[in-house]
Amino acid sequence: MTSVELLHWARGPGLQISVAIFVLGMVFRVAQNYFIGRDKNLAEPRGTQFGPGMQTIVRRSFFHPGMNYRGYFTLIAGYAFHLGFLITLFFFSQHIDLFRGILGFGWPALPASVIELSAVVGIAGLVAVMVHRIFDPVRRFLSDFQDYFTWLVTLLPLATGYMLIHRIGLPFTEMLALHILSFELLLVVAPFTKLSHMVTIFTSRWYNGAIAGYKGVQS
């Protein structure tokens, strides 16, 4: 297979297959969670469920005192990586072209210099948490293959994208193919690993908020 064929496959069938697996897997997870249902709560409700559930989804994305019990390092590196990754993914002009191609609509992009920064912050955050994971004895003990694998799968799209823009390593055609393929790997792996939190975090947050709302307390 030549580099041209590889790129063509990545932009066509590869994207179709990986997006289909991602969407199918994620919808399956959420639907399954929903239809399994919960045991009927026999206690008398002291509040509503839906509103508090939604509120919790939003509120838990922000920092609140008490989150620093794991130390500021995890907090800062975690936020840095997630923000860097999401800004790069959703606000880089050429990525918006991809979303427009799939969703049928787009949104304004951020300037290239901002994306440059967000990508570097994202990569730095990922590297930092991995260094921490390896050198902290407790974390190292608790880590298994999936932790390292999902880290690599998350890093690859950022790293190949950065190398593509800065022309490091391979020629553009090969690098673009690798970049797209690495993202497709992330899509395929996500529903079956802990990376599924990118969707299921919202369902679990909603349930947390809803349970608390039912009890009439703030989650």
Partner: peptide
């Protein structure tokens, strides 16, 4: 950077299949 094939149709089918399978197994 845009898809070279129709991805939306596949994604739509995947939503339906995922929902049915998830509901069924759930």
């Amino acid at each position: 950077s845009a898809p070279a094939a129709d991805v939306s149709k596949w994604a739509g089918a995947a939503i339906a299949a995922g929902a049915v399978a998830g509901a069924g197994i759930g």
